[in-house]
Each structure stands twice: as structure tokens, then as C-alpha cells.
Design a protein around this nucleic acid. Structure first.
Length: 263
DNA sequence: AAGACGGGCAACCGCCAAAGA
DNA sequence: TTCTTTGGCGGTTGCCCGTCT
């Protein structure tokens, strides 16, 4: 199989995405979907390879992505799931609604791996998953005990009935998980069970996807897009900057739940 | 105040598998 | 059956920014 030439050799752009590019990608996918990632950038007028577009969309621009810090609950889930599934980040991500494999991978390498090492060096520290309140202040590591080292066998971890219970602005989802246990012969048994995950999750008004590109343009002008200017040329134009700031905050910004009421 | 350093994270790279010709 | 294309995945890189000296 002949390897496709890299983006740079094809004259395609690499590196961080600009808000204009994000806007173009979102608008295009909104209008036409993403059936063919390879063709998408050309049709959308983006100087990116399809792979880069797909990654940007799946890891950052998708409207159902839950941004912001991981809750203690989510972190513990990742640890447990990693114990069962290993480095299968996409499988882990599939069980954490709103989180991407890349995000989980990053959080694993930057935080959780270290925490596990600490736990190994301090066996008093335990994984406490059940009945933890994600809204409560984080407990110190040593405050949750009952640890059983992973290689000595453990009872089936309990994932069900995570609090808080959903309010009207939240939704619940039933999820299949593989429950791993290690028996007395030190053999791992995995069985699939359906559990209820209660996730605090903003309702997503699908209406935001129905807003037309023209409406967006009218509300938040991006002249540089229509002129086909290279990214970054908008600096110095406060109207455009304001529009982009709003767009950025709307879809991407810190804490990132879309402020759909703005529409 | 400025340079060094390290952590966090977005993005890229390379490989693999599935699907289709 | 073989080859090509495409999407997906996990590992890795490199930039940015905050902290330290």
C-alpha cells in the first residue's frame, strides 16, 4: 500500500486550528455532514487533510463533547475501566459520555498514572467509586480506604447508581460495562452487565445545528472566511474578533457547554 | 524582570482493519 | 484473491503557559 503524502508536502496546513477554520468545519458538517473525510476539506475550502479535520471534529468541535475538568467520579471510572480494558482508550471513552479517547488518554498520562503509582506506594489508598458525590469537594486520597491491591483479587466493583440523580436538565443512560473480577485462582473473569450511568449533562438544543450559516454570518461576521484569507488575518478588526470570541466561547470556550440560549 | 523548567493538552504520525473495486 | 482507499486507534510530539529560580 502506498503511503499518502504528508499534509505539508501536499501544501496543506498543519498545527493548531484557528477559529475561522473551526467555523468553516462546523458550518460544513452542519450543512453536509461528514460522509467522506478525505473529500471534506477540499469541498469545505479548508487547507487541511481529512484526517486532521476528523480529529478536530471528534476531539474538539462535536457539540456533544463535555469539556472542563474531569470529576473525581469520572477519574475513578477511568481507572477502573483501564484496569479492565487496558489502553483501549476508545473503548473507555465509549463508556464515558461526552469524553473523547484523546482527552482520556491525556488525563491518564498526566494525572491518573501518577495517582496509581502513589497508590501502589501507599496501599492504604483505595478506589472508591460508589456513592461519591461529584459536586462535593474532592476527598483526599487517603480518606477512602478499604483498598485491595489489584493483583490480590477484589470484589466486583460497583458502578451502578452513581449520584447525583438527574434533574430535568440532565439525562441518564444505561450502559453496558464489562465487570472484571479476579477469582481465587488469580484468573480474570469478565462479564458484561448493563448499568445505569447518571451523568450531569447539559441538554443540547439541536436547534443550534439548524441555524443557517447565513444567520451565523449575519450575527457574527467572519469576512475573512468569505474572502478566503489565510487564518490569523482577522487580528485588529474588533468586529470580527468579537464575533470570533463569541463563536469560540459558544462552542469551545472554557467550561464549554454551549450557551444555546444566545440563539 | 527574565530565563529555565515542567506540566498539560491539542495535534500529528504510523499502523491496522474493514470495505469496496 | 489482491489491491486501494478510508476511517479509526493508540503512541508520541511539540507548543503554550504557569511556576520556579
Amino acid at each position: 500500500m502506498v503511503r499518502a503524502p504528508c499534509c505539508e508536502k501536499m501544501g496543506l496546513k498543519k498545527g493548531p486550528w484557528t477559529t475561522e477554520e473551526d467555523h468553516i468545519l462546523i458550518s460544513y458538517i452542519k450543512n453536509y455532514g461528514h460522509e467522506n473525510w478525505r473529500a471534506l476539506p477540499k469541498q469545505a475550502g479548508l487547507l487541511r487533510c481529512g484526517k486532521s479535520c476528523r480529529l478536530r471534529w471528534t476531539n474538539y468541535l462535536r457539540p456533544d463533547i463535555k469539556r472542563g475538568n474531569f470529576s473525581r467520579e469520572e477519574e475513578e471510572n477511568i481507572i477502573q475501566l483501564h484496569e479492565m480494558l487496558g489502553n483501549r482508550w476508545s473503548a473507555i471513552a465509549a463508556r464515558l459520555p461526552g469524553r473523547t479517547d484523546n482527552e482520556i488518554k491525556n488525563v491518564w498520562h498526566t494525572h491518573l498514572k501518577k495517582r496509581l503509582k502513589q497508590r501502589e506506594s501507599n496501599p492504604e489508598i483505595n478506589l472508591q467509586v460508589t456513592n461519591c458525590d461529584s459536586n462535593a469537594p474532592r476527598q483526599s486520597e487517603s480518606s477512602s480506604l478499604n483498598n485491595v491491591p489489584s493483583n490480590q483479587g477484589f470484589e466486583s466493583p460497583t458502578y451502578a447508581s452513581m449520584s447525583p440523580q438527574p434533574s430535568s436538565s440532565e439525562f441518564s443512560s444505561a450502559t453496558d460495562v464489562s465487570i472484571a473480577t479476579i477469582d481465587q485462582n488469580n484468573e480474570t473473569n469478565i462479564k458484561d452487565e448493563q448499568i445505569e450511568l447518571w451523568e450531569t449533562y447539559p441538554e443540547i438544543d439541536e436547534g443550534f445545528l439548524a441555524i443557517s450559516y447565513d444567520e451565523l454570518q449575519a450575527q457574527f461576521p467572519f469576512n475573512s472566511i468569505e474572502m478566503g484569507e489565510p487564518a490569523g488575518n482577522s487580528h485588529g478588526n474588533s468586529n470580527i474578533d468579537d464575533g470570533m470570541d463569541f463563536w469560540y466561547n459558544l462552542f469551545i470556550g472554557a467550561g464549554g457547554s454551549p450557551e444555546l440560549s444566545e440563539f
